[in-house]
């Protein structure tokens, strides 16, 4: 039994210490956002934030997470109250199949938290780890820029995500 702090909540997890965080999130905590893509640290679809940093959850065993704070996409905001980065991805319609998107968003979120105004180059370099097969890259880049702007205007604290604006449908680009 180990205590794992995910999205601000403590969870008692009964899994071997070598279990990758990804499986704990999906299997034990029933969270959907972090995705299995390769399990080898090659694609980024399992990216979550640990103590502010983007981390590949498929190669991060439970035993590294003692006393750390894990944030997944679920912890940023919800469908009803999307966080700035979520709003940005919706507004830019930055998904095709969307399977890679949660990982992209988490890595981008970590970048924006330490650098609210990244250049295009910086975003590309940061997202280099993450693969997208559908070719949604152009929109992802736009969405990250937009998220940066939104985070500056909106309440940027990720956990609250209490954005109340008109329907998203009205704000298509």
């Amino acid at each position: 039994m180990m205590t794992l702090k995910v999205n601000g909540q403590d969870h008692q997890v009964d899994a071997d210490p070598d279990t990758p965080l990804l499986y704990v999130l999906r299997d034990d905590l029933k969270l959907n956002a972090a995705k299995f893509g390769c399990g080898l640290g090659q694609c980024g679809s399992c990216t979550v934030i640990v103590d502010g940093k983007a981390v590949l959850s498929c190669v991060t065993p439970l035993l590294l997470l003692e006393g750390k704070k894990v944030t997944t996409l679920e912890g940023l905001g919800s469908i009803e109250a999307p966080a700035p980065i979520q709003r940005a991805f919706i507004e830019e319609q930055a998904a095709q199949c969307g399977y890679c998107i949660a990982g992209m968003m988490m890595r981008a979120q970590a970048l924006l938290q330490r650098n609210p105004k990244p250049t295009d180059e910086q975003i590309r370099a940061e997202l280099e780890i993450n693969l997208c097969r559908c070719g949604t890259h152009m929109r992802i880049l736009r969405a990250v820029h937009r998220a940066g702007r939104l985070m500056q205007t909106a309440d940027a604290s990720p956990a609250k995500g209490s954005i109340q604006e008109g329907s998203i449908q009205g704000s298509m680009p």
């Binding site: 070598d18 279990t19 399990g39 190669v59 065993p61 035993l63």
Partner: peptide, 22 residues
Amino acid sequence: QAPPANGNAAGASLYAATCAPC
């Protein structure tokens, strides 16, 4: 399979979980 701990259980677990898969 899980490698022998050799008196360094933390190191062994880290190896098993992060290195061994590849």
